[in-house]
Structures are given as structure tokens and as C-alpha cells.
């Protein structure tokens, strides 16, 4: 079963690359440079579902180009970045967002590092306290000859 699955994935990949004639380099008629920057930023934070290791801005896949054009079209309609992201999330799930939203499912992701930092910080602080107290008198400065820097 697993082997079959892999073969299938491989075949799908072949199917995809076979048609990947379209290019990430994709001049679009932006109104001004600010709009172009906004587009570049937005598409760089969206994940391509076909080439899943690439963002929409860089992906050569035909599908990525379709979505890029959709994003452009929505921008022309005056939609905000949040609305455009929501539009894609409604159809393709949170998977398209390289910037995962902060919610119940991702709190560990967003606040985990903070938890580790606090825990580690407490350990470091207590170590420094202990060591500076235990040897307040003994904490002699090293010799002043400059070699023991």
C-alpha cells in the first residue's frame, strides 16, 4: 500500500512537472510600485499546494500562477490582505498560510518558545544567584596581566 502510494505521488509529480511550462516570472499590470510590493509580500507568505516547498511568488507551477492571478484580481477589486488570505483559506485551508494564525491549535507553536525561554530564564537566574552568593568573597578578579582574558 505504502509503495503504491509513493508511486502515485511520484506519478502526480511527473504530471505536474510535465506541465510546469508557466513561470514564476510573471509581469502583471500593477497600478504603482506600492501595489507591486504589497503583492510580492502577500504572495511570498502564501504556500503553493502543488510544489509544497515553494511560496506562490516563487513557484513555477501552473497552479501557482492561477492563484497569483487570483490574488492580483482580488487586489484590483480592493480586497484587503486579510480578506484575500481568508478567501484562500476558505478554499484551501490554513495550509496555504506560511504565517499560521494564532489560535487554539497553534498556541503551542507561537508561545512554546516563550515558555521555554521563561523556564530557561528562571534556571539561569537561579544559577547566577546561587553562584554569586556562594562565592561573593571568593569571586576574585583574575590576575591583571591581561593574558587570562
Amino acid at each position: 500500500m505504502a509503495k503504491l502510494l509513493r508511486t502515485i505521488v511520484l506519478l502526480m509529480l511527473i504530471a505536474i512537472t510535465g506541465i510546469a511550462a508557466a513561470q514564476a516570472i510573471d509581469p502583471l499590470p500593477f497600478r504603482d510600485h506600492a501595489e507591486e510590493l504589497r503583492f510580492q509580500h502577500l504572495t511570498s507568505e502564501l504556500r503553493c499546494l502543488v510544489c509544497q516547498d515553494e511560496n506562490l511568488a516563487d513557484s513555477n507551477a501552473d497552479f501557482a500562477r492561477d492563484l497569483r492571478h487570483k490574488v492580483f484580481e482580488l487586489m484590483q477589486q480592493g480586497k484587503s490582505d486579510a480578506q484575500i488570505k481568508q478567501y484562500l483559506v476558505d478554499r484551501y485551508s490554513d495550509f496555504v498560510l506560511y504565517d499560521p494564525p494564532v489560535n487554539g491549535r497553534t498556541w503551542l507553536l507561537w508561545f512554546g518558545p516563550l515558555l521555554i525561554l521563561i523556564t530557561g530564564g528562571v534556571v539561569v537566574a537561579s544559577t547566577i544567584r546561587k553562584r554569586s552568593r556562594s562565592g561573593a568573597s571568593a569571586a576574585s578578579a583574575p590576575t591583571e596581566n591581561g593574558d587570562d582574558w
Binding site: S44, E45, D94, F95, L97, Y98, D99, P100, L109, W110
Partner: peptide
């Protein structure tokens, strides 16, 4: 079972 999540450069 939190669903498919992408973590990328913005994070």
C-alpha cells in the same frame, strides 16, 4: 489531529 499547518518564513 490539528489539521495541516504550514510554518514558514513569517514565523
Amino acid at each position: 489531529n490539528l489539521g495541516k499547518i504550514s510554518v514558514g518564513p513569517p514565523y
